[in-house]
Design a protein around this nucleic acid. Structure first.
Lengths: 229, 229, 229, 229
DNA sequence: CATGAATGAGCCTTCATTCAT
DNA sequence: TATGAATGAAGGCTCATTCAT
């Protein structure tokens, strides 16, 4: 027989798709309650990550903020990285799905781009913390989890890049670099918002949308003394 | 929203103005050598911070990368935060000074904005790591160090915001929010570059400059099939 | 030297005699089912302990391997140590009882020793995991549980020591140390088997028995070119 | 450039041969002192591991026992497993080297086996804790460290197996299994000693050696009323 | 019978920092 | 200048165990 090599059990790695939410139709009340707790926990974690950054946030912080014990947290997720992953995947998947739908509904390329921007700003207001975590903590994920989120991100990129190609008439085969750059300029404007948006100063968000759309289609406004008149 | 200031539990902060570089009037040769070492050290640290993020980089990493002993590092700076501060202040001060000079040299508002963009991209190529640290680790500084860097940043902001006001003819008194937004859109485009710039794909940088300037003045290019004709 | 008793910092120990198996006079069918489950559980636990060691095995491992919930395990035993205790006591008690019977049946001292060895090897094949746990996790038990198992072990020791005294003609009063040593040499051969036995290489076990008996009675085989022959 | 994927530095894995003891001929006094501290630390750790088992011993235990802080321990080794590895490699290497030398010095196969046993018992008295750790915590090592120690162990095995083949005249080609078994019986006797040796009862160790050698060459002593005549 | 949910204690490890030399 | 040696604090994670249901 010979003594087996001792191994820690560990297991679970990568990006384990959590059990489908509808899996067991038993004990509905229970399920609901636990799910609500998990959601609250993810929201709290997202807030802390947005505030302090992933590396600087400790699971202990989340425990303190939610009122749970440290060990209690691990009932809801398997590791700090999984926690980040869940936030990013859930949020990003929702965002991109919403964006795709918004774009689909619009008719012209111009309308599509406008819809994408407005939906983004709206989503931003509804999920500020989560979205910031998606935008800035991309690199904190590794391996399978990293790749899964990266794929969603690519879907998003292709969505916008397609519109940009349409609008500009640039040829994806010949002018790939240019399309890429203009697309990324727009992403830059969108994502940098996290760095400065202030609810008191920068609302209503529709105005911000107007301005950004103007910037995208016409660049800075001209000498008319009155902007978006 | 504006990114919250990151705080570690452990604090301690004093008068972060590190001893003025002229502090000890030691022999010149010595001074030179020491300064060169310091500069090399700062460059190495900037590289590591750009790669891994401030929180995730350890002083041990810097020691390993420079060949010094761990304790030896502390001859050159007083704390990890001071290290970050030195990088940010040096780099940001250089950048803004260069930017101011470039703008001053240009005649029209249009030329000024163009000069600012081109000089930024040029500086970016020369100091990628340091600049990235300035752009993304702003919040890792605290108290006096934070404020000092913030002040430089504000000088930069005002420089661009002034040009934007001139160009658009928006009234700083009446249309402050708009000026602010357009200014920040441009900063967004500029700073987001760190997230995607790839030396192999995105050179020559002059082309990138052309494109960004087009975006700023005219928005996305139109149906002409050929961009930057 | 004698292996010290292992002590965890955290202790708590009571009257480790677990509730006598006959405790609750519930319905017979129920009892049967529960007992079968318990036995399966003990077997699984023994396997895991044999593989990973007591300290390195977690109740979670057992739960996973049996399909029970973690909390569910505690219906069948009161603590991890009780689990170990049940395995050791059940197994050791069976072994020693079998050994005593086998010895009793044999007539001469020589036959007795032979019977003991052969029965041991047979038992070993039938209860490898459990026996390994008995042999190597002796010290993981504490207080009353430790003592109870130690007493069974002593019964075993005395059984073999008696035969050795008979066979060698050594006087228990005068040559106690010698009897002890020869006895423990034999136990060493027997127990060390766990460290190397490999079902594929070391069967049939009768051959192994032949060899060990030869070793015990005559030492290493001589120059005859053919062993056991 | 694109933000690099963040990676912890970590490094050092497997079985890093510690720097050759004579590496730097500088600061002899210092070196000596530090080495002495390390040796004392390893001895203390070995004692604790022998007492409680590797899994059950915490680095905190070692820190407490040596008077160092917990973090201080990590100046001397990289991980708990490395600590175990250092103990095993150092000890096992010494043992096997001594054993080989002792065997080499002896002329006949019989004398060689006798020398091996006596040297082992002597080494056992000089390094009880360390040797016990070698004998019983073999499986707690993993990967490269495991393999390196396993290789030393094999050297030891082959040393004894060679003598057994010589002595018995068994043919390594034809009777491999038998040689293996007799060899392992002897290892069993030798290694099991840790389980029962008691300095007060089982000295002088020469007597124990006499007995074991008798067992190996002739089996249990006969009816002569006088053992080891 | 059985489990979902939760926790206190503890473990390994890393880190920024210090200080004597 | 520079470093070997050391440490307090903190962080991620696991575990045996409990308890209401």
């Amino acid at each position: 027989m010979a003594k087996q090599k001792r191994t820690k059990t560990k297991a679970k790695q990568g990006a384990p798709r959590q059990p489908a939410p509808e899996a067991a139709p038993v004990k509905r009340g229970r399920r609901k309650a636990t799910e609500a707790k998990l959601e609250n926990l993810l929201a709290t974690a997202a807030e802390l990550m947005a505030q302090k950054g992933y590396d600087n946030m400790s699971i202990r912080d989340v425990a303190r903020a939610t009122g749970y014990s440290l060990a209690g947290m691990y009932y809801y997720f398997d590791s700090k990285e999984q926690l980040l992953f869940q936030i990013q995947r859930n949020t990003f998947e929702s965002l991109v799905t919403e964006q795709e739908a918004a774009v689909q509904r619009a008719k012209s390329a111009k309308a599509k781009l406008e819809a994408l921007v407005r939906n983004y700003l709206d989503f931003f207001l509804r999920h500020t913390n989560e979205l910031k975590v998606c935008a800035f903590e991309h690199e904190s994920l590794k391996d399978a989890a990293y790749e899964e989120v990266r794929d969603i991100r690519h879907r998003w990129y292709r969505l916008l890049a397609g519109i940009v190609a349409d609008l500009t008439g640039l040829d994806p085969a010949a002018d790939d670099a240019s399309i890429r750059h203009y697309t990324l300029f727009i992403f830059g404007m969108l994502n940098w918002i996290f760095m400065w948006f202030d609810e008191r100063r920068d609302t209503p968000i529709e105005t911000l949308g107007d301005e950004m759309i103007h910037m995208i289609f016409h660049g800075l406004p001209r000498q008319t003394k009155n902007k978006k008149g």
